[in-house]
Design a protein around this nucleic acid. Structure first.
Length: 503
RNA sequence: GGGCCGUUAGCUCAGUCGGUAGAGCACCGGACUUUUAAUCCGGGUGUCCUGGGUUCGAUUCCCAGACGGCUCACCA
C-alpha cells in the first residue's frame, strides 16, 4: 500500500509532514475497519493517582485483584514483540499499561500496537506491580477515544522553543510538567487570597471591564467601540473608581480579582492583560492596611509554598514579617547620600537627577521627580519585602493627603525583588479635594501627559453623597505568583500570554 | 518603538571559510512476553523563516521584512 499516496490526503493536509500524513492514513484504515476514532464518551471509575494511592503498598510482582478502568493520553510505547508497555497520562498523573497477546488476544493486540503516542484511549484491566516495581494495569480491553494526528514533542528534551511553548501552550502542558505545576500555584494563590478575604467578611464583586472613562491608574487604555450606542468605550485599566462607588453605596468591604488591560509595552513583567486584586475596607487607614497585607501574604504564601523563605531566581527571599518599613523620602535620601524632604527645591532635585543620569521631562514637579528618582535608583535594589511609605501627592491623585505633611499622601507600596507587588492608600474621600486633584491631572494632561487622569464626574458625584473613611489596596497577582513559582517571566504564570499574531 | 541576538527534520540540536546538510528522540521496516530515555538490525523523512541582491552557484555573504528572546523606553 502506498502509505503516502496523495490521493488519500485531504487538501488541508497536503502541506503537512509525512508524520501527519501517515497518521491520517492510519485513521482512514481504522475507520474502514469500522472503528470510530472519536468517541462520544467513556465512563470510567479510576484515575492514575487514585490507583497509585490505593495500591501504594503492593509488593513487586504482586497482583491487586482489582480491575480498574482509566482514560488518558498515550505518552510512551515500549514494544516487545508479543507484549507492549505503554504510559498513560490522565489529568492527575501517569500509570504504566501492559498490553499483551495473553490478555488482549491476537486481534486486540495488533490494534493496540498500531496506536500512536498522543492518542487518547480508555482501558480496563487488572492492576499489579511489575517485577521491577512499577505499578501497572494489564490491559484486557481498550478503546480509542480520540485519534491524535500530530506527533508530540520529544520525550526527553520536551518542548523548549519559547515561542512554540506560548503559542501552543497545550503542547507545553502535555510535555512540560512545571507548566501545570505553575498553573496550580497560581490557582491556589488566588484561592487563598479569596479565602482570606471571604473569611473577613469581604464580598467579591464584578465591576465593568468596559468603561466610558478609564480611571483608577495612570496608563494608556485600549479603546473599543459600541456599535448600538455609537460611543467609544475603554477596557479598564483598574477597577478602583467602581469599587469605591460600591463603598459609597454601603458595601463596606469589597474586593475584585480580575483582569486589567493596559496598552503599554510587553516585557518579562508586563502583559497587556494582567490580574489584579483590589480591595476596599471602610473605616481603616493605610497603616492598618500595611499590617493586613503582611498578614494576608504571610498566610497565603504559607498555604501555597509551605514556608516563607524560598529562593527566587537564585537568591534567597524571606517574607517573614515584620517587613521593613521606610518612607519613600528616607529611602531616596539614603541612596542619594543626602536628606530629601518635602521642602527640597525642584532645582536641587533636577541637579541630582542630572548627576545620576535620570532623564526628566519638562513640567514635572518635585513630587514627580522624587518618585522618578526612587523608581530608577531605589526600587530595583529593594530585594527583601519593603513597605515604602508616603508617596508625594503629585503622583497620587486618588490618595488622601498625609495627616502630617500636605506634600505627601497616606500611601504605601510593597516592593519585593525589585518590583512593585502592591499599592495601597488611605483613600481620598473628600469630594472637593478630589475635584481639585482631577483638575491638577487635567492640567498635567494639557502639558502633554496623555496618561494623566481624566475627570470622572459621576465618581465625583458619588463622593459628594459621602464615602466613609476607607483604606484600599491593589495587588499584582501575576507578579506575586512569579515569586512563588520562581518564574523569570510573567509569561510563565499566564496560560496564554499575549504574542504578536503569527505571520 | 530603539539596540543586540536568534530562526536548520515533528522535537532537541550540530554543521556548511559559498558547491542544496546530519545526530539523538520521534517515525517507517524487521527481531523480541517485564520494559520504563527498553534493546538490537536497516531506513534521513528538509522551502536550512520569507523576499530581494551579489555570484557560475546562496541555507551560508549583503539588504529588507516576519516572528521570537534579551534589553532600553512606557507601565504594574
Amino acid at each position: 500500500m502506498d502509505r503516502l499516496g496523495e490521493g488519500n490526503v485531504p487538501p488541508a493536509f497536503r502541506e503537512e509532514s509525512d508524520l501527519v500524513k501517515r497518521r491520517l492514513e492510519k485513521l482512514e484504515e481504522w475507520k474502514a475497519r469500522g472503528i470510530e476514532p472519536y468517541a462520544i464518551k467513556y465512563p470510567h471509575e479510576d484515575t492514575t493517582t487514585r490507583i497509585r494511592q490505593r495500591f501504594h503498598e503492593l509488593g513487586n510482582g504482586e497482583e491487586s485483584g482489582y480491575r480498574a478502568s482509566l482514560a488518558g493520553r498515550l505518552m510512551a510505547l515500549r514494544r516487545h514483540g508479543k507484549a507492549c508497555f505503554a504510559d498513560l497520562e490522565d489529568g492527575w498523573g501517569r500509570l504504566q499499561l501492559l498490553a499483551a497477546v495473553d490478555s488482549l488476544g491476537e486481534e486486540g493486540y495488533t490494534l493496540f500496537q498500531e496506536l500512536d503516542i498522543g492518542d487518547w484511549i480508555g482501558v480496563e484491566g487488572q492492576v499489579f506491580r511489575s517485577r521491577r516495581g512499577e505499578l501497572t494495569l494489564r490491559v484486557s480491553r481498550f478503546q480509542l477515544l480520540s485519534k491524535s494526528l500530530r506527533p508530540l514533542p520529544e520525550k526527553w528534551h520536551g518542548l523548549k522553543d519559547v515561542e512554540l511553548r506560548y503559542r501552543q501552550r497545550y503542547l507545553d502542558l502535555m510535555v512540560n510538567p512545571e507548566v501545570k505545576r505553575n498553573l496550580l500555584v497560581r490557582v491556589r494563590t488566588i484561592g487563598e487570597l479569596r479565602r482570606f478575604l471571604d473569611e473577613r467578611d469581604f464580598i467579591e464583586v464584578e465591576t465593568p471591564m468596559l468603561q466610558p472613562i478609564p480611571g483608577g491608574a495612570t496608563a494608556r487604555p485600549f479603546v473599543t467601540y459600541h456599535q448600538a450606542l455609537g460611543e467609544d468605550l475603554y477596557l479598564r485599566i483598574a477597577p478602583e473608581l467602581y469599587l469605591k462607588r460600591c463603598v459609597v453605596g454601603g458595601l463596606e468591604r469589597v474586593y475584585e480579582i480580575n483582569r486589567n488591560f493596559r496598552n503599554e509595552g510587553i516585557s518579562y513583567k508586563h502583559n497587556p492583560e494582567f490580574t489584579m486584586l483590589e480591595f476596599y475596607w471602610a473605616f481603616v487607614d493605610y497603616l492598618e492596611l500595611a499590617d493586613f497585607l503582611e498578614e494576608m501574604l504571610t498566610q497565603v504564601v504559607k498555604a501555597v509554598k509551605g514556608e516563607l523563605r524560598f529562593t527566587y531566581q537564585g537568591q534567597e527571599l524571606d517574607l517573614t514579617p515584620p517587613w521593613r518599613r521606610v518612607t519613600m523620602l528616607e529611602a531616596l535620601g539614603e541612596v542619594l547620600g543626602r536628606p530629601v524632604s518635602s521642602s527640597t527645591p525642584v532645582e536641587e532635585l533636577r541637579e541630582l537627577s542630572a548627576r545620576r543620569e535620570v532623564p526628566l521631562e519638562e513640567g514635572w514637579g518635585a513630587g514627580k521627580i522624587m518618585t522618578e528618582l526612587f523608581e530608577k535608583l531605589v526600587e530595583p535594589e529593594l530585594w527583601s519585602p519593603t513597605l515604602v511609605m508616603d508617596y508625594p501627592r503629585e503622583v497620587s491623585p486618588l490618595a488622601r493627603v498625609h495627616r502630617s505633611d500636605p506634600f505627601l499622601t497616606e500611601r504605601f507600596e510593597l516592593i519585593v525583588a525589585g518590583r512593585e507587588i502592591a499599592n495601597a492608600f488611605s483613600e481620598l474621600i473628600d469630594p472637593l479635594d478630589q475635584r481639585r486633584r482631577f483638575e491638577e491631572q487635567a492640567s498635567q494632561r494639557e502639558r502633554g501627559d496623555d496618561e494623566a487622569h481624566l475627570v470622572d464626574h459621576d465618581f465625583l458625584r458619588a463622593l459628594e453623597y459621602g464615602m466613609p473613611p476607607t483604606g484600599g489596596l491593589g495587588l499584582g497577582v501575576d507578579r506575586l505568583v512569579m515569586l512563588l513559582t520562581d518564574a523569570h517571566s510573567i509569561r510563565e504564570v499566564i496560560l496564554f500570554p499575549h504574542l504578536r499574531s503569527e505571520a
